[in-house]
Design a binder for these strands. Sequence first.
DNA 1: GCAAGGTC
Length: 677
Amino acid sequence: MHLIITEKHDTAKRIAAILAENKPKKERISGVDTYQFDGRTVIGLSGHIVEVDFPKNYNNWQKTDLKDLIYADVLTTPTQANIVTALRKLGKEAEHLTIATDYDREGELIGVEALDIVKKVNPGVSADRVHYSTITPAEIKKAFTDPTKIDFNLAAAGESRQIIDLIWGAVLTRFLSLSSGRLGDKFLSVGRVQSPTLTIIVNREKERDVFVPVPYWELFATLVNGGEFRAQHIKGRFLDKAEAEQIKAKLGDTGIVKSITRGKRSEKPPVPFNTTEFLRAASTIGISAANAMRIAEYLYVNGYISYPRTDNTVYPSSLDTKGIIASFLNTEFNEYARKLLSGELVPTRGKKETTDHPPIHPATPVKRSELKDDEWKIYELVVRRFFATFAQETLWETMAVTVDISGEDFRANGARLIEAGWRWYYSYNVPEDRILPVLKEGQSLNVKEIDLVGKETQPPSRYGQGQLIKIMEKHGLGTKSTRHEIISKLYSRAYVHGNPLQPTKTAYAVIEALEKYANTITKPDMTGKLEQDMDEISEGRITEDYVIKESRDMLGGVFKDLFKNKELISESLRNGLYEDRIVGTCQKCSSDLIIRKSKKGSRFIGCSAYPNCNFILPLPRSGQIVVTDKQCKDHGLYLIRILNKGKRPWDIGCAHCNFNEWQKKLGEEKKATKEKK
DNA sequence: GCAAGGTC
């Protein structure tokens, strides 16, 4: 038997259908669907079916010497038991094995992992590899008539990443968690991707912390000539209020139109969706990255949209774009499809063209009523974006007017949409028309009102999830499949809260400690260096063992430094952790109110002056408690949010208000039961 | 109980 292994179930099914003379026979082996035909069997994996980990005797954090962990053995253990079992069963019967996983580094590694499992039960099996970029009959058939050798160097490169990530992640995570006393489910995690990402968030917050707002003034004139419009003094921002007031004082009540400039501005249609741009767009319509990805996955497995994990921004020529557009005739999108089909179809192209998957696009039409609200929102976004990439430019007519009021120039800009173009299809965040009345040069206008508006410069804004994913991509942090997961991780570790993302004091303390003593892990450069090393491994210029040894030695050096400063690190972490526990000021004694734990393990808000002060408020029994930066108007306490795994965050708000309401309810219930009696 | 990367 000839065993063919693909990266996922979906491709196993499609490849079998292409290669089989007749319809392949579906057979379920230990819970895994496989496809058999003409002496061949195709099995689909689920990505990695094994993972690297330390031997069991290193499991206890308190009892493991971290110096030993740096040089500990690393084992490969199955994570998908049923697939591994099926693979062993099939592997025994196979004379030959072909790896048909995705054509990239992880794909090569996933294939070799599967081969290693088969070799254990069938050492004599021969093996080769096929390369394909799209699953079309022509390409798949060609790939299988021309198999190549397995690239063990490429797989070794991938394995070096796994091992280095595990060792650095585990050693630093354990060190920080142990030295801060944050054990159990509240551990402080550290990693090659998450820590540089968190550093970016913390750095932005630090910029905001030191930002000093500068006051400035803007001078506006409301002008009337039948229509009304507002013009701004040409200087824009006045840093000196007196200067603006002086000008205001000398302004008369008529203005003369000094000049009118008309022009046209065009906006090019957007490029096809890759994962990053898709998540960014979803984020602007109010759907978080993790949610958008979960929904996209659902739409994909149901056949409504294409594969959502892609870097590609160019539609391949094999994609029947016209057919897809036509499939939307007589649906909710009928008028859009009809209009597109009436013209020539030339899609936009993005900068990156890869061959793994096409850009995200709709696969088949689905009715609004068949999807939940958010699912429809995401589906509609994908459809509209797809249409927009075939549409015309958007045209704006612009108009700039300068008005002279008592020798001072005021300026007003107008813009009017004259051709909606692609914005008709992709109707998100369309800027509003700013229409100026019809004006002539030399015309005189009445000055109805002059306002001097005081403003302040604003600190740089916090990053939203969509923006952050874009920044991560720019720095080479994470992959299209993992970036949103890394961000979710930062939330669940209580390093950040809110959207845009705000770091907690714990995050400050963790990043500060790492920057001082383990700088490597806070920078995107570590990923850059790793990528270089992996390239060299795959080219056969250095070995996997060499790279791992070098990395271990380097971590050893870092660890020495950390260990020497253990006390300092411990103290600064504990300070950060304490700050995150502060909920407000005690109204009885004005000490800090903090989150505390009773001997029985239940949590409450108590006064830090206990036992001299016994002010107390209750807190929910379970879930991660986050103290937000918003305060209650009545009690001045910071509002509280509860995070539960896999659930939406629960905003309980002010703990004091919450307590009052609860007491009120309790009182009413008592009254009601009394009345019943 | 640690990471990041696949996939669902």
